[in-house]
Write a protein that binds this DNA or RNA. Structure first.
Length: 918
RNA sequence: GCGGGCAUGGUGUAAUUGGUAGCCACGUUAGAUUUAGGAUCUAAUGCUGAAAGGCGUGGGGGUUCGAGUCCCUUUGCCCGCACCA
């Protein structure tokens, strides 16, 4: 009887479900291990073969850990709020809840076919009110907290209010939108509205008037990580900058901790680097420049205070608050024209026109506080309102952008660091001796920076300051399909809903677009207000809200008293292994860390970081196939002969091509226009061309995992996806080649059963060679799984089978089945049962490796010799290298032989050298 | 521009981490078996050459007894950030 994967897989998936094989509970008698996949957004297109890659890897690891005796938490759920379902709803009128439900069911069906060890009892859906109850809860907690820089943690806002009442802002070091100063008396004199405005300056979830990424086509604002190259990540629509009142999360309060935390994480260097980059810490000085004829001073941030004697002009961002104030009457027209012009340029145009020099003079002058020189103040859009203070001191000699600006406006360029040729370009390097710089002349740049930090503070001109590129996260979306804010308004003051009224459920709606007045869809809902008639917030939370703490919810998914119970959290703690795509580097992975640290500060979770180890699986690209139509005909010419004709390359569905050979009948049936296609064949076959492209419908290169499961089985799919190459590497899917692993499973099957399906496993003792093969495989596979090198472990299985030949001895096959079970669970369950074992192979113990079986009679040892014999690695047999070295040199013949020669290898029998190979 | 990564047969890849380059598969070729095969088994398969041999890890240089691996340089590709002061 042949290996019938369809029957076997169905049978075991059914049994796993009935027996609850993958259910897991807190069990203090076992060590825990938490393996998590980034939960999917259930899109309408269903899964393609690339999606399960990470799930398969994590499943193998989870199953392996279970064999190793761990209590493994391995849950799955759905990130179910989001733009695509809502866009679809706007187009079709179908409620997103309905399409989302359909998509989830489809995903579940596809996932089930692959045989994952998920505990589905713990499934979460972000759009479920029982789930988003806790998203709203966390938001209210943030609303009710501020960040104390002194203690480096979030604290209840009540403590801040108490401090205001006692001393005003005196002596406070807290995270805020802008530095405020007031006394206790002033605080007490404020009315409720004014007080709330002040508190918004400190709350961790707060409302502010801010520059946002506005996407008109989507009708909503977007976070920075949702915008790429001036286009929305979802949909690819243009995004513009706009000032709007929005909810934000004060992520910047955590910038330093988010940065420091990275050092303790087992994440790839590249991913950590992306996060460091995104946080963008830079050390510099805040310096105040007096302005001629004005009370105010101009605050700037610079990382190069050493170049302050080279300042020849100042530049403000067009949005800077001083712009109007500093513009003199005679320059007013020019400035206004410039502001108008920059406002019109979209983000996208600005990126495209990078380095186009433009700007305008305000007519005002600042004074260099170090030498009293008068310096003109300009406005230019090369200075960004969002970074630093939105104003800079320009040093054209040592900054390329300032240099370009100075050249364009014919402003003076004063060198203050030796080196470079200023007639060609600015000298930006942080190296050289200072010149033209008064008391820092002769110092090295690095020294000079430190001296200036001290000098700026000593003279009261400013202070040393750390600046971050990280921005506070814009937290509202003018959309329907998201978590409603548990916020209502009275007198335009935002009030939190009492916790016992959570969840605030999303009301039904039938028109999903914005209103005629441009308000969010929730404005259409009559009665979207509290019992007392106060209106609720109209926007909803962004996609990352629901995904920021879902890993905590899996620990205790049915708890209606808390996000997670203390008991569950103390047992499961944090995710030991997180597998997912690198595309979440600056979004989800940043917000989750922030969210977790916040909950940690307030004592709701016990771990400071959510994801201890993280593995990024590579993307699976498509491998497209082409046919070549002879231009103007319905004849198709095979790849090798196409150069003899004038042809047109046409994508052909990869599912009707096998090993690049086209299935002619299937092709004729594919599309009506090809029904009477003719073919010019080579060697009786039609060979298709191919290319690596993104996997997408339009390229006809999408391979559905269902198709692979139906034709080869889930076990083959699982193994082949791993065999394709290193997990973290991007690689194309190529169904050619899947026969290799499928053949492996069939050969394995035939070791157990004869043609009639009779078990042919014997109880004979294995030979030393067979034992050696087995233990070599146990060692290799164990190490490879630990290193996430699944492709090489599959090679190891194949080598094992090749070496075993037809060995069908129980003592070899039994451990092998357990070893293979994480990769191919269905067939291994079947074989395990056939061997007469009770229970699931999932509950077996990972076979123990016995090094004795690997001992050989002789070894070849690579050495180096330069007067002394040196072994390049540790030798087997437990003999110390030094002992063997001594033995070699003690042998007079060998020692003589070695003189003037360089041996490559020694062939050694334990205890005795028998040969030296030159 | 700054930062990170990659480059090995016709293809995907492997290399005990500085020690016989190409494991394991796919594909290809030949043979066996079969009514048939998208089945099974056997053998060959980096390039070149009849062979002996020579050449070979993007290019150039270096360190080393020895380099796919380390260093310098260069080319090409991928990713992240980007007028970030």
């Amino acid at each position: 009887m042949e290996y019938n994967f369809r029957e076997i897989e169905q049978k075991w998936q059914q049994r796993w479900k009935e027996r609850g094989t993958y259910r897991v509970e807190v069990d203090h008698s076992k060590p825990k291990f938490y393996v998590l996949d980034m939960f999917p957004y259930p899109s309408g297109a269903g899964l393609h073969v690339g999606h399960p890659l990470g799930y398969i890897a994590s499943d193998i690891y989870a199953r392996y850990k279970r064999l190793k005796g761990f209590n493994v938490l391995h849950p799955m759920g759905y990130d179910a709020f989001g733009l695509p379902a809502e866009q679809y709803a706007i187009q079709t009128g179908q409620h997103p809840a309905v399409t989302t439900e359909q998509n989830i069911n489809r995903y579940r069906e596809q996932l089930d076919k692959i045989g994952f060890s998920f505990d589905w009892n713990r499934e979460v859906r972000t759009c479920d009110p029982k789930y988003y109850h806790w998203t709203q809860w966390a938001f209210l907690l943030m609303f009710d907290s501020y960040y104390c820089n002194t203690r480096q943690q979030a604290r209840p806002i009540a403590e801040l209010i108490a401090a205001f009442e006692a001393n005003g802002t005196e002596g406070l070091d807290v995270a805020c939108t802008e530095e405020l100063h007031f006394t206790a008396e002033q605080w007490k004199a404020m009315d409720e509205k004014r007080r709330e405005e002040v508190l918004q300056n400190y709350r961790l979830a707060f409302r502010a008037d801010t520059m946002v990424n506005w996407c008109p086509q989507l009708g909503t604002v977007l976070a920075n990580d949702e915008v790429k190259d001036g286009l929305s990540v979802r949909g690819g629509y243009p995004v513009e900058q706009k000032r709007m009142k929005q909810w934000l999360l004060r992520v910047t309060a955590y910038a330093q901790r988010l940065l420091d935390g990275l050092d303790r994480l087992e994440w790839s260097d590249s991913l950590k680097e992306i996060q460091r980059n995104w946080i963008g810490r830079s050390e510099g000085a805040q310096v105040f420049f007096p302005i001629n004829g004005h009370e105010e001073q101009l605050e700037i941030f610079t990382t190069r205070p050493d170049t302050i004697f080279g300042v020849t002009f100042m530049v403000l961002a067009p949005e800077h608050e001083y712009v109007a104030r500093l513009t003199t009457p005679e320059n007013k027209a020019a400035v206004e024209a410039y502001l108008e012009e920059t406002k019109k340029r979209s983000e996208r145009e600005r990126i495209a026109e990078t380095r186009r020099v433009s700007g305008v003079f305000t007519g005002s002058y600042a004074v260099n506080p170090f030498n009293g020189k008068k310096i003109p103040i300009y406005i230019s859009d090369y200075v960004l309102a969002g970074y630093g203070t939105g104003a800079i001191m320009a040093v054209p000699a040592h900054d390329s952008r300032d240099y370009a600006f100075a050249k364009h406006f014919e402003l003076p360029i004063i060198p203050v660091v030796e080196g470079g040729d200023l007639s060609i370009e600015s000298y930006d390097a942080k190296a050289g001796k200072l010149i033209n710089s008064d008391f820092i002349n002769g110092l090295d740049v690095k020294e000079a920076i430190q001296v200036m930090f001290r000098e700026v503070e000593k003279r009261g001109l400013g202070k040393k300051k750390i600046n971050y590129r990280l921005r506070d996260a814009i937290f509202s979306r003018q959309r329907y399909w998201g978590e409603p804010f548990p916020i209502y308004y009275k007198d335009d003051i935002a009030y939190p809903l009492p916790l016992d009224q959570l969840p605030l459920e999303l009301p039904p709606i039938d028109n999903f677009g914005p209103t005629e007045q441009g308000e969010p869809p929730l404005a259409r809902v009559k009665g979207w207000q509290t019992a007392e008639g106060y209106p609720y917030e109209l926007s909803t939370m962004p996609g990352f809200a629901g995904s920021s703490a879902y890993y905590l919810r899996y620990m205790d998914p049915h708890n209606d008293q808390a996000l997670v119970s203390r008991e569950a959290d103390e047992y499961w703690r944090s995710v030991d292994l997180y597998v997912g795509g690198i595309e979440h580097a600056t979004g989800h992975l940043m917000y989750s860390r922030f969210w977790n640290k916040f909950l940690y500060d307030l004592g709701y979770v016990v771990e400071d970081e959510p994801f201890r180890k993280l593995v990024n699986q590579g993307m699976i690209q498509g491998r497209s196939n082409f046919v070549y139509r002879v231009v103007g005909t319905n004849r198709f010419v095979s790849l090798g002969l196409k150069d003899q004709y004038e042809t047109q390359e046409i994508h052909v569905d990869v599912n009707i091509v096998r090993n690049d050979v086209l299935d002619l009948e299937a092709f004729r049936a594919w599309r009506p226009e090809y029904a009477d296609a003719e073919f010019i064949l080579e060697d009786g076959r039609y060979i298709c061309g191919w290319a690596i492209e993104k996997m997408s419908k339009s390229m006809y290169n999408v391979v559905n995992p269902d198709y692979i499961v139906d034709n080869y089985g889930a076990d083959t799919l699982r193994m082949y996806e791993m065999f394709l190459g290193p997990l973290e590497q991007s690689k194309p899917w190529d169904t050619n080649g899947i026969d290799g692993v499928h053949k492996f499973l069939r050969r394995l099957w035939r070791l157990f059963f004869d043609g009639e399906g009779k078990l042919i496993v014997t109880d004979d003792q294995p030979t030393p060679a067979e034992s050696k093969t087995l233990h070599k495989t146990i060692k290799k596979v164990g190490e490879d799984i630990e290193n996430f090198s699944f492709n090489t472990s599959i090679s190891a299985f194949m080598i094992c089978l090749n070496e075993l030949g037809g060995c069908n001895k129980r003592q070899v096959l039994e451990p092998l089945v357990v070893l293979l079970a994480p990769f191919a669970p269905h067939i291994c369950e079947e074989l395990w049962e056939a061997l007469g074992q009770k229970g699931s192979v999932c509950d077996a113990a990972f076979p123990t490796f016995n090094p004795e079986y690997l001992v050989e009679n002789s070894f070849e040892y690579p050495v180096s010799f330069n007067g002394k014999v040196r072994f390049k690695k540790n030798l087997p047999l437990g003999i110390p290298n030094a002992e063997i070295e001594a033995a070699i040199l003690a042998d007079p013949n060998t020692a003589k032989y070695l003189e003037g020669k360089t041996p490559k290898k020694f062939v050694i029998v334990p205890g005795k050298i028998i040969n030296v190979v030159i």
